[in-house]
Each structure stands twice: as structure tokens, then as C-alpha cells.
Design a protein around this nucleic acid. Structure first.
Lengths: 210, 210
DNA sequence: TTTTGTTTGTAACCTATGTTACTGTACAGA
DNA sequence: TCTGTACAGTAACATAGGTTACAAACAAAA
């Protein structure tokens, strides 16, 4: 583990902290689509992402979903941090967007390291910072953008995260994450195809001009 | 200042920290409607709210606004915290919702106190926690609720913050904060009045059943 | 090959919300 | 008292997006 740890967090954390993480952290590999956490779960550990990507979703009372943002290499889940303090339940759902490697840290260490290591403190603050900004981005999208703009942004985001220009999702899946209906997505995708922005295929979409 | 400080933050901070705050903090009173911070501003100090309320707004490229949430007694601005670390510009606008008293802390103290005082650390973490949750609430509202539900929620929130059941706003002002148009708000307000939920007057609204 | 379920395309329709335009009325200042 | 402006009510219309329904294309299984 120490190898992957160093290459991803070596520039952030001092030697002593890296060693502590190596001792108490547990290495974990999850495959695409597996659920890392659900709404209402109690949190026992916080994840440090080593590779891959995780999507964070919100759900309303009717079970309708909405994609909030992605976690990527070097990220941690600010919602988890938040829950560690208050010992509250998770407000969000986390699902591996692709095969993902992570290191799980027992939450008891949070507080201890916060006083002991300045680098840890900064990391935590930075994570909050990043998450707040991503939430703002999300709010901007749903409040200020029309569905076609949101869709295009979503596709580009997906492409960026998965590191290629092919989106392996059905229209139905996209509709869930944007909290709209399949017909609407099909309609707008077709429009984007006619504009030459994308190519539609069964169960996958190719993004052009990237 | 020490008096107001103790009564609001005495249960959170230890004696030594309270004294430091008292020494380096500057007391400030602002009246309703005054702008505390705008988008693009550089942040030089972080505010601790002693009394009153501050509304936090987001703006899109066309200058259209959206209310994010309110800060109240005992709150601080997580966006400010966020900016302190990155030395970045403000992403939001802050306007006094009513006459407000606050203590301004120079941002240099942030880092120093974070390592020195556990209570300060917890306060900062807690602020992030609260703000993230409020952002989630905001996202829920704009993503999952219809405009009439959002409006009712907004009115109740306003009433709660201003501590009485009269909203002193024009339809136009409400429309700005919910990012819609005056006509839509007038229409929905009239509907709410017919349902017996509110009473409409010129430049103010009375909330019943509270 | 046939069958079955999944995915997509599309039409037709509905509703919430946004837009424009015009009215009357309350209020403030001249 | 008169007048201009801000505020609110409302109608008429435009549009984005949500809904229902159905057919065609495709893929996997039998």
C-alpha cells in the first residue's frame, strides 16, 4: 500500500503521517457500479481515493436521484468528514463510477491527526473547500442552465472523469442522474447529434470535438 | 465586546481563545440591506455573527441572483474560510437581512488558532458541516420542488429568520431571490392567499398558520 | 431461427413556468 | 391637490420540459 499512498499523497503529507496512514488504513478495491455508501448509512471510515472515480448522488423523497459531483484521485469525501464530527447518518449515496482503489481511514484518527499534523488539517480544509465549490457548481447548473446545456456539461464531465470520449450509459441512466425523463434526454441527445456534437449508439455515446 | 462575545460563543470557546478574539477582533454593526461582501471581493477577515442575519446569494453570468441560505447568530461564513486557505476571491454575495452585529477576525489567525485551539478547530469543522448541509437543502429545493413549494418554504424561512410573521418584500424582490419573474411570484402568491396560507399587502406579506 | 427483453425514436399531448402587455392603485414628493 | 413612480393583478400567449403511447432496432437467450 505504501507505494500507492506515496505516489498520490506523498506531496501532501509528511513522512510520519504517511506511516500512520499505512498502519491504520485498509486498502480496498471496488469495481465499477458498486455502492460505497448509501443514504442513511452510518460512517465508520473515511476514504482516500487512490485511483478511479466515485459519483456522489442525492435522492428526494420519491426516490428520484440527482448527480452532485465526482470524487477523483486525491480526493476524499467531505460528507464523510462532516458525518464523523456529528456522528450523523450519510446524506448522500456514493457509487463507483469506474474501478476504484481507496484507502479507508478509521474516523477516530480524524480528530487525532487534526491536532497532530498541520498537513492533515490543511488536507481536510482543502477537501471542504473543493466540495463547497463543486456544490456551488452543481447549484449553478440546476438553477441557471437549461436542460440541453446541463446535458452537454454532464457528458463532458463524464468523458473527463472516465478519460475517454465514450459515455457508456443508456439514455435512461442519464435521465436518472440529471433528474429528468428518458424521453427528454433522447430528444435533446438527438438534437446534439444533429448539431454534430455527439454520435449516438446503442448504450453508448461518442463525444466529438473534445 | 467581551460581553456579547461570551454570551454567544462562551459555550464553544475556551477562555484563552475568547481573550484572543477580544484582542484582535473588531466589532462591527451593519444595518439591514448593506452589502458585507460581493462576488470577486478578496477576503481580509472572517465574520462571527453575534446577532442579526445575513443572506448569502449566488449570481450567474447574466446577473441573475439566487438565494443560497442565511447565516444567523453563532454562524460564520464557510465561504470565507474557504477563501482564506486558497487566497481566492469570493464566490458569493453577502447582504445583511436585518440589522446585524459581528466580530471580524483577521484571516491570519485562522491557521494559528486551528493548531492552537481544539475548540476553534471544531468550530470551523462544524461551520463547514452546517454549510454543506444548507447547500444540500438548497439543491433539494431547486432540483426537487415546484415553484409554489419553494415559495412557501422561502416565506417560512424568511419569517423564521426575521422572527415574525411579516415579510417586508415586494414580489419583485422575492422573484430575484428565487430566480424567477415577478409575474410568476404574484400568481403563486395569489394562489397561496386563496388557500388561506397568507395575506397580501402592498410591500409586505403576512404569514398565517405559523 | 424464434422469442423475449432492452434501448431508442418519435408523435401527440399536458403543465409549469416564463414573457409581454396593460390596468388600477397606493404612496411620495412637488 | 396633483403627478409620477412603484407595486400588484391579470390576461394572453410562448416555450421548456414532463407524460403517455407505440413502433422499430437491436441484443441476448432459448
Amino acid at each position: 500500500m505504501i507505494q500507492e499512498l506515496k505516489s498520490n499523497y506523498g506531496h501532501l503529507f509528511e513522512e510520519a503521517l504517511l506511516n500512520e496512514i499505512n498502519q491504520v488504513g485498509t486498502y480496498k478495491e471496488v469495481s465499477e457500479g458498486s455502492k460505497l455508501m448509501d443514504i442513511g448509512d452510518y460512517i465508520k471510515a473515511m476514504p482516500l481515493l487512490v485511483s478511479g472515480a466515485v459519483k456522489i448522488l442525492r435522492e428526494d423523497n420519491d426516490g428520484d436521484e440527482l448527480l452532485l459531483y465526482f470524487l477523483e484521485k486525491g480526493d476524499t469525501c467531505a460528507m464523510t468528514l462532516t458525518c464523523c464530527i456529528g456522528q450523523t447518518k450519510s446524506e448522500i449515496r456514493a457509487i463507483a463510477e469506474k474501478d476504484t482503489k481507496l484507502i479507508m481511514i478509521p474516523i477516530q484518527k480524524m480528530e487525532e491527526w487534526s491536532s497532530k499534523y498541520k498537513s492533515w488539517r490543511n488536507f481536510v480544509f482543502n477537501s471542504y473547500h473543493n466540495r463547497l465549490n463543486e456544490m456551488l457548481e452543481t447549484i449553478d447548473s440546476i438553477a441557471f442552465l437549461k436542460m440541453d446545456e446541463r446535458l452537454l456539461k454532464y457528458l463532458n464531465e463524464k468523458a473527463r472523469v472516465s478519460d475517454n470520449n465514450i459515455i457508456n450509459n443508456t439514455h435512461q441512466e442519464i435521465a436518472y442522474e440529471l433528474h429528468t425523463s428518458r424521453v427528454v434526454i433522447s430528444r435533446l441527445l438527438k438534437k446534439l447529434e444533429n448539431l454534430g456534437e455527439i454520435e449516438l449508439h446503442r448504450s453508448h455515446i461518442v463525444i466529438k470535438n473534445i
